[in-house]
Every structure is written in structure tokens, then in C-alpha cells.
Amino acid sequence: MAKIPLVFKVNGEQQEILVQPYQTLLSALRDELRLTGTKEGCSNGNCGACTVIVNGRTADSCLVLAAEANGAEVTTVEGLSQNGQLHPVQKAFMKYGALQCGFCTPGFLLSAKYLLDSNPNPTEHEIRLAIAGNLCRCTGYDKIVRAIQAVAQAEV
């Protein structure tokens, strides 16, 4: 099957690659661009480990075809830090110990950023709803919620 050209911006950088028509965005990011911060967990939209931001909105990149991202702007966890400075949600996750094995963390960071960008002062319930599409098997979520609250309260 003929590969198709994909021209899109990833973390602010213009990329031109060839992808298979059936290739997912997750695979294009990991296997073609070697951006392995985005993780593959369940591959069916339950775990959120593959969460990225596409045109300003979070998506499970395992359920997006790479070809659908033609012309899009994509942010992955690698694009969160700016000028060598970690993003506030990254700092908060470190400070509050909001991770153990770390596999789910990139997805949580992007969901947290997406929430806080549109709702800088979320309630605990809003935070828990916003991260319902991200599964963590280590932390029990409490520290993740505290970390996101800390960013909202500018404690990091």
C-alpha cells in the first residue's frame, strides 16, 4: 500500500514524513519521529497513556490516524517545557510525587495542561473528571490531583 505524505507541526517544529494509510498518530510520533514520550497502553482509548494535544485539544493518539493530522499542530510531552524550563504541571508532579513508574505521566501532564489552560481554578471534582481518561495503576490518583491543585493555586 502506498505511503502518504504527512505535513504537520509537532511541538512547534514543521515535520514532513511518509506514513501508512492505516498508521496511527501514536505510531507516527513514536516510530517515525522517535518521540517516545507518548506511550502506548491499551490501544483502545481507555488508558490515556498516548494522550497528545491536536489543534488545541487532547486526543488519544492511538485512536487518531496519522493521516488525519495532516496540517495539524500537535503537542507531545516533549513539547511541554519551554526554554529549558519545565512546565508548571511537570514541576508540580515532581514536587508532589505524583508518579511512581511514570508510564502514565506524559498523558496525565497533557490532560492537566489542557484542563488548566481552559479552567485555571478547577474544583477537585473537575480535576477528577478531567483525568478520568487517564489511568494510573501506581499512585491511587490522590497525589496527581494534589499536584494539579497546586498548579492552580500557584504553589509551584
Partner: peptide, 9 residues
């Protein structure tokens, strides 16, 4: 319908 990520698509 699903999570935030799902609702966005």
C-alpha cells in the same frame, strides 16, 4: 461519552 480525550474527537 467516554473521556475528555474521546469527547474531543
Amino acid at each position: 461519552v467516554g473521556s475528555v480525550q474521546i469527547q474531543n474527537r
